[in-house]
Design a protein around this nucleic acid. Sequence first.
RNA 1: UGGGCUGUAGCCAAGCCGGUAAGGCACCAGACUUUGACUCUGGCAUUGCGCAGGUUCGAGUCCUGCCAGCCCAGCCA
Length: 551
Amino acid sequence: MSETGSNFILEAIEADLAADRVRAICTRFPPEPNGYLHIGSAKAIWINYSMAKKYQGVFNLRFDDTNPVREDEEYVQAIEQDIRWLLGEAPNGGVFYGSDYFDQCYEYAVRLIRDGKAYVCDLSADELRQTRGTLVEPGQNSPYRDRGVEENLGLFEGMKSGLYPNGSRTLRAKIDMASPNMNLRDPALYRILHAEHHRQGDKWCIYPLYDYAHPIQDAIEGVTHSLCSIEFENHRPLYDWVVNNIDFAQKPHQYEFARLNVTHTVMSKRYLRELVETGRVDGWDDPRMPTLCALRRRGYTPTAILEFVQRAGISKTYSLVDLRLLEYCVREELNRTAPRRIAVLDPIRLTITNYPQDKTETFPLSNNPVDPESGTREVMFSRELFVERADFSETPPPKWQRLKPGGEVRLMGSYIIRCDEVVRGPDGEITELRCTADLETGNKTPADGRKVRGTIHWVSAAHAVDGGAFLYDNLFTLENVNDVPEDANYMDFLNPDSRTVLSACKLEAALADTRPGDRFQFVRNGYFCADTKHPGMFNRIVVLKDSFSAE
RNA sequence: UGGGCUGUAGCCAAGCCGGUAAGGCACCAGACUUUGACUCUGGCAUUGCGCAGGUUCGAGUCCUGCCAGCCCAGCCA
């Protein structure tokens, strides 16, 4: 992975260090356990993780579980696992739960009430909305705003002990109903929610809201730099209000960066969940999903994903990063590291007519031509072979390098062959190619110096193994990814009349020179699954799936 | 319409105190090639950095005024 480049967050940290405002860096990634992590989450993880790492600091994983009705244990398990996979290690600061700080949140709330900075409000959600004002008009003070401290204390105690129904009261911060920043118009700090919490059980029936709980969680954990995405920028004044009014010794600070968007990719947890719940996909790890577990299943490596996130950059500018940058990152890594196998997805029979019926031999093939250390393997050769249907053309287009009638081509790592005859079935379909091999030359270069441009994959019919491979199109990819607008959104996706409907092209099997039981995956021209670079071409970097299993 | 943030090539993105537009992806051309991959070479913002003025010997960088996009009116995070 490349060095973390210069960015504004780095500058802020450097400045804090230089001015001695902080001694050691502590960051955190605070997902709400209400869904699986996706490629967009990887950016937030990476930024927080790498900043701590760069300064030998501490990085925490903290589940922001302040809303029991949305959260579930399933997600905390999955998130923790995905982070370990992505980072290759557990968070060095540890794993925490926002809900474990509920007692402290409550105590601090009592303190704010005592200080006259918070009050219990009896307005309903509806009434609250009506008195909040609009973007251009100030709101009105709640009639309950000036309740006495003792009354507030009693009411808040009552809220905690379950005296009141859901939604009947809130604890609100007393800030400024006329603030141009809506978040400062006496925001709710606590709401009543008689609900079972996945971790706290029924201990609580009031739950703190994000804006109140988050800064407290950061402060308790000693987080110095709370790095989050840009939609929280408007919340920073409230974050600071909480930190300052509770008066923590070490005050955490929030910095924001633009979230990651990728072309042709749905990046909203809400929509992804809907896809899963409505059965449009097989699950969170369906290969068409942009989740980390799905990318893992497809053979993406954590290092490639992290590399992508870094290359995409850290700034505050809205951006839509080209999917092809992600593909470049995996391609670059896999080309260096992935073991190759020759394979045929759509087979057509090819007979070497001048090759003895009962003879077999083996040829050594490189496991990875760009890695001299990878060694070779012996691949079975015989008279009856399978080659890729797309590697033969009767009426080849200009510059065609692969097999054609009367033309020569190299069987990768093996003989040069010439196509003599095309055999057709009753329906006119090509059923067999009859060829002669240059047995003299073998797998060497021709003695007469002639050039054979094309090289194609092949597999011995009697020795090939059914690899049970799958090919999926990308989430938004149809026949041609270029037909799909870059900003294709969920609505396009759900509309059955739209071109951007979900499509999974599934290829059930492939023949390859692997051992029975091997599971593997293909990279088409270096692109996973959907090839946006050379549609129709097939380069067949074949990767043993087992080489990057999740565990 | 109030407030906050952002605006450098097709897509990202450097650009610190003003000094004459990094890099990557993508793309194009060529070389090499027993994966049309990889690799290599060359080309890719013709005073141009949202627009318009201004200051200056000189501005993407400073000033003024516009314009555009994103976020905020959950007892979501």
